Computed example of a mutant assay.
Amino acid sequence: MVRDLLRDKHDELTASERRLAAVLLNDSLVAGLQSITRLAESAEVSTPTIVRLARKLGFEGFPDLQDAIREEVAARMKQPLAKLDAARRAEHGDHIVSRFIEAASENINRTLDRLDLAEFDRVAELLSEPERRLHLLGGRITRSNAHYFYNHLQIIRPQVFLLDSSPSVWPQALLDMDARATLIVFDIRRYEKELEKLAGLAVNQGANIVLFTDTWGSPIEKHAAHCFRVMVEVPSSWDSTLAMNFLIEALVAEVQNRRSDSSAERIAALENMIGESRIFRSL
């Protein structure tokens, strides 16, 4: 993917090429869809600089780079009906369950292949810090992922908060987002502007961001200290978050392992509280 190539080749780029790369990344590659002249003006570089960058990324020239950008942007912005039409046009003879299992399994395997284990450990350590406040929020589709992560984290450690889905109440939460806070955000295509705005405000307050996104990468990446990209494509008009939940459960297990004594005491206290309050018991 062009976004990954730009990051991987960053150290090999000249100052002007880095400026051009920053323009492309800051605008989610959309700037690359304009003419080479307009792009050069936007990035304040020469047109030969654009051609040199394209070749350093492995393309023959700017037209090939632009084709790759166009495909990447189109895939990132693909709407549910377009995905459904593509699935209907595909030739297949297997049952939907078989095709879905195959796609979901491939998503998990490809996500694990790309997973940076050192980054995973850094995030697990961050989420294990007892004095750190954790705030979680997802989008329209990923809200359930945020809620699932919250349900587990708040059992094994204190100071875990699930943000309300209404942006009108986010300012209250932002008051408590400082250098001792982490905002865990879930955002897959179609990316939500409100989440991006919140992430920027949280970083301005001193908080850091842990982002869960899809393979194309949410615009929130530019704010995130840590990012997990997962594969989401399945034969459906909707994206799948099974690979995302796999990472969530692995992180829960590791955070609990790092807080084994305190989390065991907390779980025991919860069990006693449930017993004392007679919750879920028949009268």
Rank of each mutant, 00 (worst) to 15 (best):
R7Y: 12
D11A: 14
E17N: 09
L20N: 01
A22F: 09
L25W: 11
D27W: 03
V30H: 15
S35P: 08
I36L: 02
T37Y: 14
R38P: 01
E41V: 07
V45H: 03
S46C: 04
I50V: 09
V51N: 06
L53Q: 06
K56Q: 10
F62T: 03
D67W: 07
E72W: 09
P80R: 03
A82H: 10
A86E: 15
R88Y: 02
G93C: 04
G93K: 08
I96K: 02
R99Y: 03
E102V: 13
A104I: 14
E106Y: 11
R110D: 10
L112A: 14
L112E: 15
A118E: 15
E119M: 08
F120C: 03
A124Y: 08
L127Y: 02
P130N: 05
R132T: 10
L134T: 14
L136Q: 02
L137H: 05
G138Y: 13
G138Q: 10
G139E: 01
R140F: 00
N145T: 07
Y150L: 11
N151V: 10
D164F: 06
Q172K: 14
L175M: 08
A179N: 07
R180P: 00
A181I: 01
A181K: 03
D187C: 04
I188P: 10
E192W: 13
K193V: 12
K193C: 06
L195G: 02
L195P: 01
G200T: 11
A202F: 14
N208E: 14
P219M: 09
A225E: 09
H226F: 12
H226R: 02
H226L: 05
F228K: 05
F228I: 10
R229L: 07
E233M: 08
V234P: 10
S236M: 14
S237E: 07
S240H: 06
T241C: 03
M244G: 06
F246Y: 11
I248F: 09
I248S: 03
E249W: 11
A250H: 09
V252E: 06
R258H: 09
R259S: 03
S260L: 08
D261S: 11
R266N: 05
N272K: 08
M273I: 03
R278I: 11
S282L: 14
